Simulated assay, not measured.
Amino acid sequence: MSNLYVEVDDEALAEAASILGTRSKKDTVNAALQEVARRHKRLKALERLVEMGRGGDFDVLLDKANYRR
């Protein structure tokens, strides 16, 4: 873990702590950074699913005869 000293917007920090349910500044910043990384991964996964859908990868599900095979 790195020690990093930065100026932080107190209002934004308080709002993030409320949303994230954290109590300390350190926990809030770490949780926010982790959430950004997780959100980015989810977005990339969703983009891959969209491309798969456009490519017809899920078309087999449209045929109810094949739906539960």
Rank of each mutant, 00 (worst) to 15 (best):
R54Q: 15
I19Q: 09
T28C: 04
L33A: 14
R42P: 01
R38T: 04
V29E: 00
R38E: 02
K26E: 03
V6I: 14
V29N: 00
V50R: 11
G55P: 00
N3R: 15
N3I: 15
D9Q: 06
Q34M: 14
V8T: 11
R39N: 12
V60N: 05
R48E: 15
E7R: 14
S18A: 08
S2A: 15
S18Q: 06
A32N: 01
Q34P: 00
Y67A: 11
D9L: 03
V60S: 06
R69A: 09
N66S: 11
Y67H: 14
V50P: 00
Y67Q: 09
N30Y: 03
V60E: 09
L46K: 13
L62M: 12
R23V: 06
D57E: 08
K64S: 08
V60Q: 07
E47I: 08
E35V: 06
V6Y: 05
V29A: 02
E15A: 14
S24A: 03
F58S: 05
A32P: 00
E47D: 13
S24V: 02
G53F: 04
A12C: 12
A16K: 02
N3P: 07
A37Y: 07
R48W: 10
Y67E: 11
E47M: 14
A37N: 05
K64Y: 03
L43H: 13
L49V: 13
D63R: 07
K64L: 10
R39F: 09
R68I: 04
